[in-house]
Design a protein around this nucleic acid. Structure first.
Lengths: 328, 328
DNA sequence: ATTTATTATGAAAGCGCTTTCCAAGGAGTA
DNA sequence: TACTCCTTGGAAAGCGCTTTCATAATAAAT
């Protein structure tokens, strides 16, 4: 079934059918209903390729993720579903593009070879150069995260600053005074945001946070273990620990156990992300949750709006919430 | 830059450029090199939409996953990356389509509205009806898994039968004689395969496996807990437990602890999938691993081959391996 | 030298849709 | 009545590529 055939059957021109299909108002209600019924009856589905060619709009959004980071990707699964959900609703499609972030030229080539007309960057893991390249090439994109490298990039993600703030206040509320932090990479905007919020809360509460009790590394269990061991060997003491990801917390918890330290008796530990593992380890991890799927939905809505209207939207920070479990 | 412009610059016809771009052998090496250099110099990228329209080949593969099963989806992340990787290599693209599996008509409509020309079904979780629909509509597809509902569907996945076999033998090798199994849904081919292999090993080893020690449910921690509690309340005893997924094992382990049973001292527990949690829980879970990414790559290669040659490939079962950790 | 098989290239007709431009008719206005 | 304005619908020109068919050129066979 092609548009033209439908036109013939309905006794109208192809232009009219196209208008009906695309909700163009320049058709009388009468004609519209008639065409619609013919379409219904004959089960017509527009050819996406033809539509894309004629309108130079592919209706395809690409989700860029760094290759080799399966774990990260799986963390973004809920977001992906949120995006896909909204896409489907608006007749868009979600494509996933694992990109070798260490080779930006290849990345751009892959993106250019793809039919996607916009991209959501799912990792602040990659440095900012990638984002600058996207901007330079004029590809509409939204980054999932906060703290974009340039103020006119649009970022949508959890409100990490208040996340960090919340954690510190909670720890302090539990009587902890000697706080420590194990965080993500230095260049990671989200990690820096969490740090900032955490610091603010410390200042407000009149609590010191010496640099030696801050350890930055990857968002992985290994980093957690490293940090604990490093501190232990230097005899650095603390009673409240903020791990910037649940993965880090898993490692930290294990190392702590190894050193015969009890959680939550001796020290309180808080993670971040409220991922699945949080309920699977012992003690169950107190952590900070954010609405992954909702974020995905917002990103998709914003991006689609941008594509349709041509006006770049503003970013958005989603509130986060503390999930109390057993590690504090 | 369009093909036509390249043709003009190179002083050849559009047809020739097209042939060069598509590796059509009907071009002399000389011409080919020349055109290629012009393309290189001017940075030409073919328009995917036009190509799709003219050839009615979108080069897009859809990964169908059931909506709302984020956890499952995340489990398939590595596979997705494998697929995407091979796709990229062959100029294909991977689209993800969360489908409401409870409404097959909607599923098919969504698939038909998408530009995908083939699909990989990532969940044996959905009943077989979906697969039959795909077959009826003549959409090329490969299911990830084993034991397809119809013999002429192509399935690619881990060799679950030998996985189950391996587990039983291992348990028995550890001196366990009273075996028990907590498994996935009855309609799940993969679960049934594991069961079959497990049974075979029992028979060969002359070990009884009474039905009361087999509990089937979802692939979730809850199922593991239910099973343990059910058995405990009935006073059913066992010393070797096979959980058909790591998730189930997590629940079982927890329930076991709740009943004051020690693992691995009192009973040995083996999971399945070698997912991330396996190393994060205590005791670290002995489990069965399979090459997720490799499976994805194979699926993609097979599907692309099918698309290019038109001949339906044969399915494939990947060997699995036992990962020894602390729960046995 | 003539015919036949081969190979390399171009011309041109679409693929199925969108969109601009134009025409016709009806309503509103002077 | 003559004029302008607005609404609805059609005609037709592409969008950028693929692919069939024809043709020219070259090689092989007779």
């Amino acid at each position: 079934m092609t548009l033209e055939e439908i036109a013939k059957i309905a006794g109208v021109s192809p232009a009219t059918v196209s208008r009906v299909v695309n909700n163009n108002p320049r058709v009388s209600q009468e004609t519209r209903d008639h065409v619609l019924s013919v379409i219904q009856e004959h089960g017509y589905t527009p050819n996406e390729a033809a539509r894309a060619l004629a309108s130079s709009r592919s209706h395809i959004i690409s989700l860029a993720i760094p290759t080799g980071m399966e774990t990260l990707f799986s963390g973004y699964a809920k977001m992906a579903e949120g995006i896909a959900h909204i896409c489907a609703k608006h007749g868009y499609h979600l494509m996933i593009s694992p990109l070798p972030m260490d080779d930006l030229d290849t990345c751009m080539a892959m993106l250019n070879n793809s039919p996607a007309e916009a991209v959501v960057v799912a990792n602040a893991q990659c440095g900012p150069e990638f984002l600058f390249r996207l901007e330079k090439e004029g590809i509409p994109f939204i980054m999932r995260g906060s703290n974009p490298p340039s103020p006119d990039m649009v970022a949508v993600g959890p409100d990490y600053v208040s996340g960090g703030y919340m954690v510190a206040r909670y720890l302090i509320g539990h009587g902890r005074r000697n706080l420590a932090v194990i965080g993500g990479p230095d260049f990671h905007g989200g990690a820096n945001d969490r740090m900032e919020g955490f610091r603010q809360a410390c200042i407000i509460s009149g609590i010191e946070l010496p640099d030696e009790r801050i350890y930055r590394g990857a968002f992985l269990p290994e980093t957690g273990m490293e940090a604990i061991h490093a501190w232990a060997s230097k005899g650095i003491d603390f009673d409240g620990l903020f791990c910037m990801s649940d993965g880090i917390a898993v490692g930290a918890l294990e190392a702590l156990q190894g050193h015969g330290i009890n959680v939550p008796e001796d020290i309180s530990v808080i993670g971040f992300d409220d991922s699945e593992i949080a309920t699977m380890i012992r003690p169950r991890l107190t952590t900070v949750g954010h609405a992954q799927q909702e974020i995905g939905e917002r990103i998709a809505n914003l991006l689609i709006g941008w594509l349709e209207t041509g006006v770049k939207p503003a970013g958005w920070a989603f509130p986060v919430h503390l999930v109390e479990r057993e590690s504090c």
